[in-house]
Design a protein around this nucleic acid. Structure first.
Lengths: 224, 224
DNA sequence: CCATATTTGTCACCCGCTGGTCAAGATGAT
DNA sequence: ATCATCTTGACCAGCGGGTGACAAATATGG
């Protein structure tokens, strides 16, 4: 999962980036509205954390522009503690959730997880595909009930696929959502990790669609 | 399906070409209006992506010329973000859809798919012919409900025929719409692929009209 | 703070699939 | 029967993808 943070205060921004990366997200950080808006318009994020008090362009404006352009990623807005009006305005402008500063990073993480879950149309924080179950809350994976140890990267890859079960996900899309901006786009890491995951979970969990990418089967097995 | 991209910014153009080819289109790329206009006038495209901010000739002019020449392919116009006048002018000049820069390639792909679907007179993204069903959205094909694995090329060929169900499609037309500019026109690949598709979907799906080409039966055939 | 284990990404090599060519055989039209 | 057109099996080069091994980076533990 890949996030964009738009936060003008460098220390806080950097700190958030580090924490969220620690929670398994690929994070891009932008410190002003102009740049942040551009990133959100061109790159493909799973969620955005947007501070309203920005220099240059105001956060609300940025959000409004995104929505007008048809960007649908979930946006979590950071507001000053007591600016009640901001919250209302934020929700009006198309924010999906808000959090008042100062806040516990714990809470931010929890809310982001919920946002992403909802936006991908998953009802529960438990995702399943055949014998595989993934709990986004605890970050644990089981195969036929048995716990399986995945490494951080393996988990990210699998998690993205499970959030988009049934859809064909291209290598580029995977790279874009698992790594942040600067990453060597032509290398075969994805293939390598798919192999490693298959070794742990069985070779039939992830299907290869030649020339297009990978896919987790939807439970659309039809018998009779 | 074959597309023409007219985009002066080389990086963006090339990137678009690559992505769209990845989505199964044959793509010609032109970097200036003069050349772009020529291609659109001589070759046969299923849709055109036209950037309005072109050197030499303006995009709107090109579009106008095409329409005056009687070209009917659907045109998706790329406009700068805030130039609202461009949009209006574009639609007036005969554009079928527009997309403001910057945009996400996902969206471009979706819009193109819709444009082509509409321009071929198909109401849904699910095309059917007898027992065969093709979903342009997911790229999956089923025979009597059973999923069938087609290769990329097989899919392109079948997809084109299904978009033009009932019409007799000549070999040249197929070649022109499945491959891009540089392709050896006299070879029997088409025949070979027709054979291969028949082997997978049954020999009666594609009818041969000797001397003219191939055709997918309209479902209403009834021999009295 | 060093030693060790684990993880991550790169590389090289292999393999099977796919797309395209060719040529021989089948099928139709006249 | 003759000729053109279409079908199909065989063949092969090239590509995309899978995998083991190695090296760098990072985490773990004494």
């Amino acid at each position: 999962m890949r996030l964009l943070i738009v936060e003008d205060e460098p220390t806080l921004g950097q700190q958030l980036k580090t924490t969220l990366e620690g929670s398994g997200y690929a994070v891009d950080l932008s410190t002003d509205g102009e740049d942040g808006h551009f990133l959100g318009s061109t790159e493909d994020y799973d969620a955005v954390v947007l501070d309203l008090g920005l220099p240059e362009i105001d956060g609300l404006t940025v959000l409004g522009m995104w929505r007008k352009e048809g960007r649908t990623f979930p946006v979590l807005v950071l507001t000053a503690r007591d600016s009640w009006s901001d919250k209302v305005a934020g929700l009006d402008a198309g924010a999906d959730d808000y959090l008042a500063k100062p806040f516990q990073t714990e809470e931010l993480i929890a809310r982001l997880r919920a946002l992403i879950r909802r936006s991908t149309g998953n009802a529960s924080s438990e995702l399943t595909a055949g014998p595989v179950r993934l709990d986004t809350r605890s970050g644990k994976v089981t195969l036929d009930g048995e716990p399986v140890k995945l490494t951080a990267q393996e988990y990210k890859l699998l998690s993205y696929l499970m959030h988009h079960k049934g859809k064909v996900v291209s290598r580029t899309e995977l790279i874009e959502h698992i790594y942040d901006q600067d990453f060597d786009r032509d290398s075969n890491t994805i293939e390598v990790f798919v192999t490693r995951i298959r070794k742990k979970l069985g070779s039939d969990v992830i299907t290869t669609i030649r020339g297009l990418g990978y896919s987790l089967e939807d439970p659309e097995e039809r018998v009779g």
